[in-house]
């Protein structure tokens, strides 16, 4: 095949175009403010410094934002894994009144933009005394229609015989779910877990609205407010901040990428 080399060349150029901004970010985070403003710009840091990271972790409270982001994402992920697999199982495998109606209503909310719900949600959460609190950040995201859909599809593919075997052995309905069926959905749980974590980590609009003091900011909120506030000209700090936001999800994605791309190909949804 003579034509393959230029196909690979295009492919590699594409990879360079995708990777270049990330590389620019990492290299920039080790440059001084003076070097960042230099024309023409430098690629490799001339006098590399960790000053930006020192500032990030001492002057700015990025460790705090990091912990907030991680805490919210972990609880949201745990909630989605628990509640979405529960209802997903019921919708796929158990007969009860209103099952189809419930499924249709949940699916109909898949396309509702966050912009539609955030104002009444803000009024509700504020009046419940949960503004600027962890429960306020977490509660609205503990379940997602996407998670219900994913888990239901996966449960549909499991044979009913397993449940019948459990019934013959005298297990209760909940025991059949928890001990026989749920352990078989590990691949789906992995996909849902990783996608939910990434979604929560990157979530912006709601934490922007509900986190009102610095000690409740998540990383994207802090970065956005720094980049538009009085630190807007502190380029090195912003580059280092972007690294702290992006790096954990990149590492996590590379470790679990099979689950992510498989889940998207299966459900056709992000």
């Amino acid at each position: 095949m003579r034509r393959t080399w230029w196909i690979y060349l295009i492919g590699v150029l594409g990879l360079v175009a995708v990777a270049a901004p990330f590389l620019w970010m990492v290299l920039g985070s080790f440059k001084t403010q003076g070097e960042l403003l230099r024309v023409p710009p430098t690629w490799w840091p001339q006098d590399a410094t960790t000053q930006n990271y020192d500032d990030l972790f001492s002057k700015a409270s990025f460790p705090r934002y990091f912990v907030n982001s991680a805490l919210v994402a972990l609880v949201v992920t745990a909630g989605n894994l628990t509640f979405c697999s529960m209802i997903g199982y019921a919708l796929a495998k158990l007969r009860f009144k209103g099952r189809n109606a419930l499924f249709i209503v949940v699916m109909a909310t898949l396309m509702i933009p966050g912009m539609v719900t955030f104002v009444p949600l803000f009024v509700l959460v504020t009046n419940a005394g949960l503004a600027n609190s962890y429960p306020g950040l977490i509660l609205p995201f503990l379940v997602s229609p996407f998670g219900v859909f994913l888990m239901r599809q996966f449960f549909l593919g499991l044979p009913d015989d397993l449940m019948d075997a459990g019934r013959v052995d005298g297990s209760g309905e909940l025991g059949i779910f928890a001990r026989i069926m749920l352990p078989l959905t590990r691949p789906a749980l992995a996909t849902l877990g990783i996608l939910t974590f990434l979604g929560s980590w990157n979530n912006f609009l709601w934490p922007l609205v509900i986190a009102q003091t610095e000690d409740k900011y998540t990383l994207p909120v802090a970065l956005a407010l720094y980049s538009t506030g009085q630190n807007a000209q502190n380029y090195g700090l912003l580059m280092a901040g972007a690294v702290v936001v992006v790096l954990p999800v990149l590492v996590m994605f590379l470790a679990f990428q099979r689950h992510v791309t498989k889940g998207i190909a299966i459900t056709g949804l992000k």
């Binding site: 990879l15 901004p21 990330f22 970010m25 980049s227 992006v246 990149l250 990428q257």
Partner: peptide
């Protein structure tokens, strides 16, 4: 994986970069 990488990153961070 390379082409998919930007999809999983925060839009805020991407916008800053």
């Amino acid at each position: 994986v390379g082409y998919y990488l930007p999809v999983v990153t925060s839009i805020v961070a991407i916008a800053v970069i």
